[in-house]
Write a protein that binds this DNA or RNA. Structure first.
Lengths: 192, 192
DNA sequence: GTCTATAGGCGGATAGAC
DNA sequence: GTCTATCCGCCTATAGAC
């Protein structure tokens, strides 16, 4: 019974992410969502306490995934270039595995309520600082060109962000080719 | 008098873009906007016909700017690498000149009404095809590495997109340094 | 657990006075 | 041109029956 409840909650979260991506958090009503689930809007409040809770759960699930994966990479023995490349590959994989959730987190985090919003921003800042540190150490170690750290940071993070806008299951391009192409452009450059 | 009306309309559009960026199109009410302008919500309907019109105007202004600038670049005599770099610089400049408008266009285009939405998507597709053609010709001419065209296309477009999320007037980094850093990463690569 | 009914609020937009 | 007043619809969320 508690299992059943979890299953349904998972379904609600999954459909919520899909709808939020499609129509935006503010553009999605609980009635829309309920219709997808096949119950009445009022019945959903048996599983959740508010619409905000849905967004909060989605955003922090993704945010926490990023943070714990960065922590894992930091602990490995590898060059900074290897660590950064591993991070890029992980970003792409998370996006493919949870494309709707990532999309919502990227675009609708601003609709988080006061408390969660500031917590979310803090986490994101912390994550960005972690990646920036990898870049700076890489430059110090002579592995990277001496470009502006912030610019490099956001160029990398953005270069993986678009995958969410573009990738759909069954695309003719494989995950591996996708990862390799992005890494080639970012680390070796487009120009011959 | 028609000048006065234009001036106020421009002000409304400008404040609308700022608010939409901050709180999202759906999260912004006409009452919010009116307060910024210093008049009552009802009075704004003297200048505009609907909230939708504001979004439509913002999105198509930006979209048209991109398209006409691509057309100009296509006509120049230059290598494909030079054309692409010029395009990247223009993207960055538009973003700095009209950061709120670009932000809204990037994030809230999905709230466009039926008709405008499909027109907008068509324009975007057309633009993307134009940039993709530059890439493909560049590969054919031996200027670029033979990476997947779509991946290269979206990596470039995304790499300039983040500027909108990050750049603020008075940042310690100059426009030139910003442009040069992004172009270095994209075309020469991060790795030494 | 799911429903019907509905409270209560906010939103876009209009009517019409001044 | 700007206001006040207001319509009307949609929204989130709750109450309470079954």
């Amino acid at each position: 019974m508690s299992t059943k409840k979890s299953k349904k909650l998972d379904l609600i979260l999954e459909e919520a992410a899909k709808l939020f991506r499609q129509k935006g958090f503010a553009g999605t009503s609980m009635r829309d969502l309920a219709e997808r689930i096949g119950i009445d809007a009022a019945s959903m409040y048996h599983y959740i306490s508010s619409k905000d809770e849905l967004l909060r759960t989605i955003c922090f699930n993704i945010s926490n995934t990023y943070i714990s994966q960065l922590a894992e990479i930091e602990q490995t023995e590898a060059t900074y270039a290897e660590k950064l490349k591993a991070l890029v590959r992980l970003h792409i994989r998370i996006m493919i595995a949870k494309s709707a959730e990532v999309s919502v987190t990227n675009n609708d985090w601003k609709y988080l309520a006061e408390d969660s919003l500031s917590r979310f921003k803090e986490q994101r800042k912390k994550y960005e600082r972690g990646v920036a540190a990898l870049l700076e150490k890489g430059v110090a170690a002579g592995e990277f060109q001496a470009v502006n750290t912030s610019v490099a940071l956001f160029t990398i993070l953005s270069a993986v962000r678009w995958v969410e806008l573009w990738w759909r299951p069954g695309r003719e391009i494989s995950t591996e080719e996708l990862e390799n192409s992005i890494i080639t452009i970012l680390f070796k450059g487009l120009e011959k």
